[in-house]
Design a protein around this nucleic acid. Sequence first.
DNA 1: AATGAATGAGCATTCATTCAT
DNA 2: AATGAATGAATGCTCATTCAT
Lengths: 203, 203, 203, 203
Amino acid sequence: MSRRPNTEQRRTEIVNALLVAMAEYGYEKATIQLIAQKAGLAPGLLHYHFKTKVEILLELVKTLVDLSLCRYLEFAESAKTPEQKLHAYINARLANGRGADPKAVTAWVVIGAEAVRQPEVRAVYQKAINSELSLIRGLLTECLKEQRKPTKNASRLAAGLLAYMEGAFQLASAAPDAMPSGYAASVAIELVQRYIEGESQKE
Amino acid sequence: MSRRPNTEQRRTEIVNALLVAMAEYGYEKATIQLIAQKAGLAPGLLHYHFKTKVEILLELVKTLVDLSLCRYLEFAESAKTPEQKLHAYINARLANGRGADPKAVTAWVVIGAEAVRQPEVRAVYQKAINSELSLIRGLLTECLKEQRKPTKNASRLAAGLLAYMEGAFQLASAAPDAMPSGYAASVAIELVQRYIEGESQKE
Amino acid sequence: MSRRPNTEQRRTEIVNALLVAMAEYGYEKATIQLIAQKAGLAPGLLHYHFKTKVEILLELVKTLVDLSLCRYLEFAESAKTPEQKLHAYINARLANGRGADPKAVTAWVVIGAEAVRQPEVRAVYQKAINSELSLIRGLLTECLKEQRKPTKNASRLAAGLLAYMEGAFQLASAAPDAMPSGYAASVAIELVQRYIEGESQKE
Amino acid sequence: MSRRPNTEQRRTEIVNALLVAMAEYGYEKATIQLIAQKAGLAPGLLHYHFKTKVEILLELVKTLVDLSLCRYLEFAESAKTPEQKLHAYINARLANGRGADPKAVTAWVVIGAEAVRQPEVRAVYQKAINSELSLIRGLLTECLKEQRKPTKNASRLAAGLLAYMEGAFQLASAAPDAMPSGYAASVAIELVQRYIEGESQKE
DNA sequence: AATGAATGAGCATTCATTCAT
DNA sequence: AATGAATGAATGCTCATTCAT
């Protein structure tokens, strides 16, 4: 009798097509026509499944946030100590290889620039940043505690690490050849490790 | 030979207007009309002084690079030791206060996203990144030398510091409320200092 | 022969949904999707029961004409004299209260504007106008005859009364607050009565 | 040096083109392309002189209101008595011949239907209706006073006359062939005259 | 140098209609 | 009968660029 809905699948296809198109052309130049073409769909169909173009972008932000969290959980699966978890996190975010997705990284960079001017995008971006900060702060706090170091600087260090990562994404997307190969994860780990070492012991 | 009465000034006005417009609306939405309005000029005049819109953007990149170098030189004026110079550099880039220009920072972030997709922009952006990397590497190398530490990691550390700064710009532009206030410069200095401290002495 | 289970009912539902949608959004903005939603039906179903959108509109015109005639017959049920019938008619069309349907009135106004440009709509609209004119002319003729007045102006007066009513519909739909409350029926009755009084007696 | 603005002229051209297009196709089908074509201009230019399509419509309303007032003043030029003025008004609005503009009438009808659904249009439409009501009320009040009749019904009668006129416009636009030729002005005058005659003398 | 109107390609979005299920 | 996804032409609007003055 009735036709079976396939909206969820179509929405996913469209969001992925935006990811690809944005990584290549940016948000403005990732036109509905182009996204439709990358998804192999008729342009009109995109507006059947999404009310506006920015709604696709908001969905993409969600998708990337989820993806990023999953990737950490995967990397952290066998991690026991706080330090192992922290390294798992940094590697999940910055290491090349296994499942690293340059297009997703570039899309994230473009989203960051859109967050500058589009309030709706900014809102979800900020939410994502806050979640990430919490996650990092937690990981750092555990490391500091284990080494009997004070945790009062955990927030500031977390902010620093997040900045480092966001910048690494930016540079990987826009000036990869200028950067030493594979620096990102290893330098991050060293910086954080030595920062913690440098903290004076609690009494 | 021929007098060019006010061409240079007009160009500067236009470039500054783009800076302001971009910080607020992004590159695509910073229309010629809008830039002209911000500059207090007629729209047609912009194409008299610049062939295309992207040419204004390229000029803006140059301007920002110059500005940024000047700012460092200003901060470093009284610096004697390598360490003082390094701190001067980091403060010039990341500290709030004197002459900090949030709009320029945001414009730079937007430029970074445009570099992802526009080859012409990418070219000048990469050039700027390379210059900056050289500058940082030099500063770090001096610091390491003075402390009789090996300099072989200077490049990788320089890359890390640059990533950190670019990310700090991004987050300051798109999620300022999420970040601890005034973290950027101080955390950067601590991270680098402890990294250097952590380097094993040369023999 | 073949059973048509619910086709008639569905068609009525759809026509009523168009009535409601048009009163709110006009004809063009009363989209198939919107009509379907107001009718609680799937969009595709509308084109099963009606070939095109304008066909629904034509059906609505018929419905409104029928409705309007029924309303008169209802009001005229207890009317004996020609004057009573005329007043019943005017009240049926213009009086507030019992069964007055502002949405139907507004829909009729919108139909009148569509008749300006759509030949198909214009055809049925004109047919409706002609019927109405005949009806009014008949009522007026009876009144004139009874008062032994000449009937040669009946057509022109009928046209005037019809214009008055159509205008009252228009103003009730688009500028209700500007009009004195409840003026429409009573002023119409007075105008017609005094017009007839003013006619010179037949000899 | 600078180019002379011609905006006022262009705006007038565009508004007139909308008038013509709307009389023929209605508001929705009077597309920007079509209006531009009727005006002999490039489509993009319409949005240079008007921000949106509805803004052209609002300007058209103003134009028609002005036109209608001018036409009355012209007709009333030689009118001395209140009755002459009233007749001048009715003839200015309803009589065929001299300067009668069927397209303007039809455009006004279409505007009336747009007022049903577009708040911005409704606002200016209502304002126009209120002005017109005031004008008519004034004319009727003068007539009543002169004949020493009470003026308490002037408002209701004015509303009735306005309704009559709006309806006459509607029918002239959508069903001209159904109406007796030239009925509108003469019947209106008779109706009003006999209404006033029918008012009981003041004591 | 400067103005501001003009152009036209391109954009997101809408929507009647079709169609496989 | 019914569903709801799919289509694609059309729409209002944007905007870099051009150009007559």
